[in-house]
Design a protein around this nucleic acid. Structure first.
Length: 854
RNA sequence: GGCGGCGUGGUGGAAUGGUAUACACAGCAGACUUAAAAUCUGCCGCCUUAUGGAUUGUGGGUUCGAAUCCCACCGCCGCUACCA
């Protein structure tokens, strides 16, 4: 009998698919398309088991959609620019380009044995000049439409990577990649005008029905829309021409509780005062430093400097308020100036207490005592107004805010405005290994865009024959002897190239569109994007919920404006699925108070405990994120060698819901492998039995078969892969125990192979061919469940008494409710539960349940 | 601090408001075997004697009926944070 030899059959079927070219995607308007995409990997050099899970999910979708009649596009590429390549060059010498392309080769080599139904002919890396040249073309188009611009800005400077970071890339005050505390620096930078689309990017989230609510919420919070009142205070004795201070507030209803005005140390007025008064300058310098770490912000003291200036309250010009420079006011939100209402804001309360300012409540609780400190109820709570000016005595905060804005507008005191937290996306990076920004700086013409026919502006590989020295900090392009020199595209005179390159998030913001025409000499091709876009199913990690997905949504809109994407692609991802991680236990002992981590192969597991070879017990920390330093990384290449790709694919889908983390265990992988061998054995036996053999009724087996088709189809469609696999286990058990006729068993085994084929394509192909299936299973149409085959004559109904299960009856499927009721009441245990009482009511849900109410 | 999510056996988990614990792991017993591996069969949440009973973090509510819907609390996790 044929044994299950994954190494042999996987290579064989991969070759068969390749020879038949069945995964090559061709535009075909006569067929419905389906575009499934997994977030493409960074070429770190090795594939990770998390990649296996991500791409297996995509492959299940791709193969399933192909079997259900779709023309499927399922591409793969590499997000290939970025710091690690430069770091590697710094650490080990060599060139980022060589390092990157060699890693890509290795990873492709590691991915191919997994048997993904990818169209490899469309593969590209974002560091290919053919790709980033088109990205430069997009940049020029964006520039023309005003979607990208240059400005002088205080930026987040990463002192380790020596580059600028976007706000989104600063996490807890540290660089997202280097982890170094971020510094503030003023530089001239390129920015994408994403904030102009903030409102649209927020509103359009509502239309993304097939995105996880969680992701939409995270984006909504990030964009951060607020509605408030913007107005100005008149300065009593203006200095240096600042006669008004413009403030923004989301709580105009507390205007009569104002006790001071605060401005940011970066506010123009503060800067003006700073120039004239060294004491102000000293304070501002100190305040600007601030701490950037989470702790520093948490414990930071509110510091203020009384400027001596006074402003008039807009409703009572005899009422004067002091003006403070305060360290907790941010220049880049709102107007950089606020009015403080200590009674209803915790920060203002702290500040007012410290500097002895008035605390004037404008409302109090409807019942109960006025609390200590600042009283900040939810905006939806009703409160009693004591110093209100435009609303009922009892109103919610929100109603009061709306009324206050209306009132102020009618009195000519400011206007209602909507503000967003989202700021423009700074894209300049002072790095070598990125897409060059295609502009030149000309002494006579200024900043001039490069001509499109001169694209790509290619990165220099060396320095005039000498290798670039990456071990010097800073940007090699900036110090390159010749690369910067060029002719001005406008006047032809001598000019210098921009030496900044683009943030790598730019590269990943449009690759999905490029896959539809990866070799085109324009960024996209209308026929191809019209046909293939949008991405029907996008799959990736939740860690990209904000940055990558928000940037891509912006890019899609910007590309639409420039004519590179159709209207329908303004939201490029129709459905999004965020998968969980693959985790693995850490095995740890302690030596001299320090943890020692042990490799899984050095630990024997017995009854849930782990022991080293010498008998020492190890501590098991379950479900930990894989990390090289913790020795708990599972290498897909080793797994494939040991068990085959199908086992790896089956296991990463089987144990947990796909959106949740799954723990890799050796026992689990072993079990998955055993099961696949069992399926292979059962199928082989059926194949060898031929048409002879014992005969029993076929109906039970076929009924289960059709139910399994229904359940697995539903499971695959709804990303319930683990549940679908459970049904496949159950059906395998049914098949193995069945005494149905050989023909029925053969049909059941063929169907089983088909239902498994998205997950275990090689094994399924092999079984298909063993049993004489027609052609390749990869091209066979998906089986359809036959409703009529699932009907059973009798049905077992549970009987509840007051909602508790007390027994069951088996009755003919179409027995009238009255008779079902009679039969249910006759059950001995039901009578006992009733304890002589008359049932008050009996609810019969046909085919479902009987509930007796006593 | 703010926003959100999740709590079901020893473990991963299943369950359109309708038989809670499917399926798998681990464990136990048996068959086959000289033995082992592999394979096959059975048992396997809790209390209880088979019968039966209680049970989905805790407490309430809605409902004929709640793991599922609502409220409060406890615990864990994620995101975010001086955003006016």
């Amino acid at each position: 009998m044929a044994r299950y030899e994954p190494a042999e059959i996987e290579a064989r079927w991969q070759k068969a698919w390749e020879d038949a070219r069945i995964f090559k995607a061709e535009r075909d308007p006569s067929r419905p398309k389906y575009y499934v995409l997994e977030m493409f990997p960074y070429p770190s050099g090795r594939i990770h088991i998390g990649h296996v899970r991500n791409y297996t999910m995509g492959d299940v979708v791709a193969r399933f959609k192909r079997a259900t009649g779709f023309n499927v596009l399922h591409p793969m590429g590499f997000d290939a620019f970025g710091m690690p390549a430069e770091n590697a060059a710094m650490a080990n010498g060599g060139h980022p380009k060589d390092w990157t392309y060699s890693n890509i080769d290795t990873m492709v080599e590691q991915m191919k044995p997994l048997g993904f139904s990818l169209d490899w002919t469309r593969m590209f890396a974002t560091c290919d000049p053919e790709y980033y040249g088109q990205q430069q073309a997009l940049f020029l188009d964006f520039l023309e439409k005003g979607l990208v611009y240059r400005k002088n800005a205080v930026v987040n400077w990463d002192p380790v990577d020596m580059t600028v970071l976007a706000n989104e890339q600063v996490i807890d005050g540290k660089g997202w990649r280097s982890g170094a505390p971020v510094e503030r620096k003023e530089l001239t930078q390129w920015f994408f005008r994403i904030s102009e689309m903030a409102g649209e990017l927020l509103d359009a989230l509502d239309g993304l029905d097939d995105w996880p609510a969680k992701v939409k919420l995270m984006q909504a919070n990030w964009i951060g829309r607020s509605r408030g009142l913007q107005f100005s205070f008149g300065v009593v004795e203006p200095e240096h021409g600042h006669d008004r201070i413009e403030v923004y507030t989301t709580r105009p209803d507390t205007l009569l509780g104002a006790s001071f005005v605060g401005i940011s140390p970066d506010h123009p007025l503060a800067k003006e005062l700073e120039r004239h008064d060294p004491k102000v300058a000293a304070f501002c310098t100190e305040a600007r430093k601030g701490g950037t770490t989470e702790e520093a912000i948490e414990t930071a003291e509110k510091l203020g400097y009384d400027t001596g200036l006074k402003v008039r309250h807009p409703f009572d010009t005899s009422w004067e308020l002091p003006v403070y420079i305060a360290n907790f006011i941010l220049m880049d939100y709102g107007t950089g100036a606020i009015f403080g209402c200590p009674a209803h804001d915790e920060r203002d309360f702290e500040f007012a207490t410290k500097y002895g300012l008035d605390i004037i409540p404008t409302f109090e609780p409807v019942e109960g005592d006025y609390p200590k400190g600042a009283y900040v109820p939810a905006k939806t709570d009703k409160v009693r107004w004591t110093r209100g000016f435009a609303w009922d005595e009892l109103a919610t905060g929100q109603d009061a805010i709306d009324a206050a804005i209306d009132f102020c507008e009618s009195k000519g005191v400011g206007q209602g405005v909507t503000k967003f937290r989202l700021r423009d996306w700074g894209l300049s990076r002072q790095r070598y290994w990125g897409c060059p920004i295609p502009v030149v700086h000309c002494e006579t013409c200024g900043v001039v865009p490069e001509k499109k026919e001169n694209l790509p502006v290619e990165l220099p590989y060396d320095e005039g024959g000498k290798p670039i020295d990456f071990s010097i900090p800073g940007n090699p392009l900036d110090r390159h002897p010749t690369w910067r020199d060029c002719a001005c595209p406008s006047c032809g005179g001598p000019a210098l190239r921009e030496t900044d390159t683009m943030d790598t998030f730019v590269d990943s913001s449009w690759y999905f569109a490029r896959f539809t025409a990866p070799r085109a000499t324009t960024p996209t091709v209308a026929e191809d994007v019209d046909y293939w876009m949008n991405v029907d199913q996008y799959i990736g990690g939740i860690e990209h919920a904000i940055l990558h997905l928000l940037y891509s949504r912006f890019f899609a809109r910007a590309m639409h404006i420039c004519g590179h994407l159709p209207e329908k692609s303004k939201e490029p991802f129709d459905a999004l699925f965020t998968q969980g991680m693959v985790t693995h236990a850490i095995y740890q002992t302690t030596k001299n108070g320090r943890p020692v981590y042990h490799y899984p192969e050095d630990v024997d597991l017995k009854d849930g405990r782990g022991y080293l070879k010498d008998g020492t017990e190890v501590e098991i920390i379950p479900s930990a994120k894989m990390s090289k330093s913790k020795n708990n990384v599972v290498d897909p290449v080793a797994i494939i060698q040991q068990y085959g790709a199908d086992t790896a694919r089956w296991f990463v889908l089987s144990d947990s819901p796909p959106e949740r983390d799954v723990e890799w265990t050796a026992a689990g992988a072993e079990a998955a492998n055993r099961h696949l061998a069992r399926v292979h054995r059962i199928a082989s036996e059926i194949a060898e039995t031929g048409e002879a053999g014992a005969k029993g009724p076929d109906e039970p087996l076929l009924r289960e078969m059709h139910k399994t088709i229904r359940d697995v189809t539903l499971g695959v469609e709804s990303f319930g892969f683990n549940a679908a696999i459970a049904k496949l286990y159950a059906f395998t058990n049914t098949l193995s125990k069945s005494d149905a006729a050989p023909a029925a068993k053969r049909q059941a085994a063929l169907t089983l192979a088909q239902l498994m084929s998205p997950m275990t394509p090689h094994l399924s192909e092999d079984i298909w061919s063993l049993l004489g299936g027609k052609g390749l299973i990869a091209e066979a149409p998906w089986p359809v469940a036959d409703e009529s085959m699932m009907v059973e004559d009798s049905v077992t109904l549970p009987i509840q008494v007051n909602g508790k299960r007390r027994g069951e009856i088996t009755v003919p499927k179409d027995m009238p409710a009255g008779e079902v009721e009679k039969a249910a009441l006759a059950v001995e245990n039901v009578q006992r539960a009733l304890d002589g009482a008359q049932p008050r009511k009996v609810i019969v849900v046909p085919g479902r349940i009987v509930n007796v109410v006593a």
